[in-house]
């Protein structure tokens, strides 16, 4: 393997990892606020089809992003209403959202199957940074959404850990009753976090149809939303670790194919299992002590509906 092959591998890894990164960053915020949303796959698909339809009809990339993001947010709003207002079971609602989103996207996308559009993202190399060996080409000669995903990492880390808004989000996920007593509108915080998560999943979908696969087909995400959910646990709800994890999972996704192409035979099924195996490994070995108790780092009230009246 020479340097150009490694550069090629890294570039493909970053692109393959970007949908995971966008979706898992959104899910981190959702879960930090105490809501578990397993509907990432469904929200991603609806965002993907909404973005693609908009691109085909309007020829405006900006509008396509906007519609895709809003569509993802709207899907998440359904989950928020069911789980926060109606206090439904979050696992059931999330699964339903995935099934619903898969069907809805297929239905909406019927008319744009096979339709080609030129309204696509193209590589926008960043001068200067691009000339760093290997890393420069991999990270800084990509489509703009790849940069957006990378930029979101420090932004979300800063908001979650250094601002009062982040404090409210984290405390809503840890102890909503105490947060409520402190005068924070827990419901508003949780609604906001859930909808933000949906918007990020929608953006991940837009990335798939307009920057990665450059087409719409039914079930285009094919399980990438689930990898993003696993990634949140793998990253232990930390945006920086999500960045590393996304690229690692992206590498895992392509490495088996790359090895086969140069004549090294390794079962691809093994590589398909790896993201989940790695996540299981983190769950088994990665639990540390938090405040004297063993914990996996999950928000304490994750997936527990907050009920003001409950004692």
């Amino acid at each position: 393997m020479d340097l150009s092959m490694i550069t090629g591998l890294m570039t493909a890894m970053v692109a393959a990892g970007t949908p995971y990164l966008l979706a898992s960053l959104g899910e981190i915020v959702t879960e930090k606020g105490g809501i578990l949303n397993l509907g990432v796959e469904g929200m991603m698909l609806v965002g993907a089809v909404a973005g693609y339809i908009t691109a085909v009809k309007s020829n405006s990339l900006l509008l396509a992003i906007l519609v895709g993001v809003l569509a993802g947010g709207l899907m998440a709003a359904i989950h928020a209403f069911l789980c926060i207002t109606l206090k439904a079971n979050q696992v059931v609602s999330g699964l339903a959202l995935t099934i619903f989103g898969t069907g809805l996207s297929a239905f909406l996308g019927k008319d744009v199957v096979g339709v080609v559009t030129d309204t696509l993202f193209h590589n926008a190399p960043i001068p200067g940074l691009r000339s760093i060996p290997v890393v420069g080409e991999a990270l800084f000669n990509q489509t703009p959404l790849v940069y957006v995903a990378i930029l979101m990492v420090p932004v979300l880390w800063f908001v979650l850990s250094k601002t009062s808004l982040g404090m409210k989000i984290r405390s809503a996920g840890e102890n909503p009753a105490a947060t409520d007593a402190a005068g924070v509108n827990v419901f508003a915080v949780q609604y906001g976090c859930t909808i933000f998560g949906g918007m990020m999943a929608g953006l991940a979908g837009v990335f798939l149809t307009l920057a990665y696969n450059n087409t719409w087909m039914e079930n285009i995400s094919a399980g990438q939303g689930w990898i993003a959910v696993a990634l949140v646990i793998f990253a232990r709800w930390n945006p920086w670790k999500a960045l590393l994890g996304s690229y690692l999972f992206g590498l895992v996704a392509i490495l088996g194919l790359r090895l086969q192409a140069v004549g090294i035979s390794i079962p691809t099924q093994l590589f398909n299992m790896l993201p989940y195996l790695l996540t299981l490994a983190v769950m088994i070995f990665g639990t540390g002590k938090v405040g004297g108790k063993r914990s996996d780092g999950a928000p304490a009230s994750l997936s527990v509906p907050y009920d003001r009246e409950a004692r």
């Binding site: 092959m5 090629g8 591998l9 493909a12 393959a16 798939l208 990665y212 696969n213 087409t215 087909m217 285009i220 995400s221 094919a222 990438q224 996704a253 392509i254 194919l257 790359r258 086969q260 192409a261 140069v262």
Partner: peptide
């Protein structure tokens, strides 16, 4: 879609 694209790119890279 993603795996088909990645498989194709792997072959092109080789």
């Amino acid at each position: 879609a993603a795996i088909e694209k990645q498989g194709t790119e792997s072959l092109l890279a080789a």
